[in-house]
Amino acid sequence: MARTDSWENLVKGVINGDVRLMARLITVVENRQPGWQEAMKRLYPESGSATVIGITGSPGAGKSSLTASIALKLAEKNLKVGIIAVDPSSPFSGGAILGDRLRMQKLFTCEQIFIRSMATRGMLGGLCHAARDSARILDVFGKEIIIIETVGVGQDEVDIVKTADQVMVVCVPGQGDSVQAIKAGIMEIADLFVVNKADKPGADEVVADIQSMLELSVEADQSIPSVIKTSVVNNQGIDELVEQLLQARQKGFLSREKESLRIRAEMKTLLEEEIFRTVSRVWQDNEILEQLVMEIRERKNDPYSAVQAMMQVYKSDKN
């Protein structure tokens, strides 16, 4: 299991369309292994042509199946599709079961579709970067449409879909007040609402709920996002949905202003990540930590000064 490929090699692989090396680079970047920043720096100028669609919604909304249907339709139109499917990590062990492929079996025979499962890993904002960076890698690799699918329950996951060009929120009938269940912050950034499993009773009520909520929340100068009913089982509404996504892709999603905002946001989160990682490094240094804890226990020191002292270490670490 000699995983010794240099980042240069992996980047070359991505540009030359080598799936295996590309998949490896995703791992390196996800793990923040040595060379990841260099690789991303090298890839950044080549990126920017793909459209990233973020799909979120409550558990059990049928996101994976819907994602699979959309991807299949896009592939039929000869578009190259990448999927990043996110599932939560166990807060106890840090492990995860990533089962989205289970619902996407129809895609496996489709060469143009690349699927990557990703766990949230519980890092502060970590997933957000990993997903965005992976999307960027897929972009340079030649994927034209990249779908990031995630459970809309954690803040991390909300942050991921925020990095998408087009945000789609999936609701279903029969989950009680499913509109209420949507994480705050998502409603405002959604470009499109989908009421999935529309073959089940109650779909129209959910559509009405969403519409009335939108009328309240959308500001006057904004256009009201559309609400589409779909049913994967009956292949209903998928064509319309894909048409909408493609139209939006043609128009181009982002104003210059919006794009600048997003770059700022990305820089801010990257900076946070850097700081967090450095702090973690200091935190892991047991000797210093042990020393400080002992001092505090003996009331020779206090946690406030100790943290300031640790910041000193952080600063010198940076130099």
Partner: peptide, 16 residues
Amino acid sequence: LRDLGFEVIYTGLRQT
């Protein structure tokens, strides 16, 4: 394996 900290991708039944 999940509970021992691994990331497990489960593909379900009927894989070629």
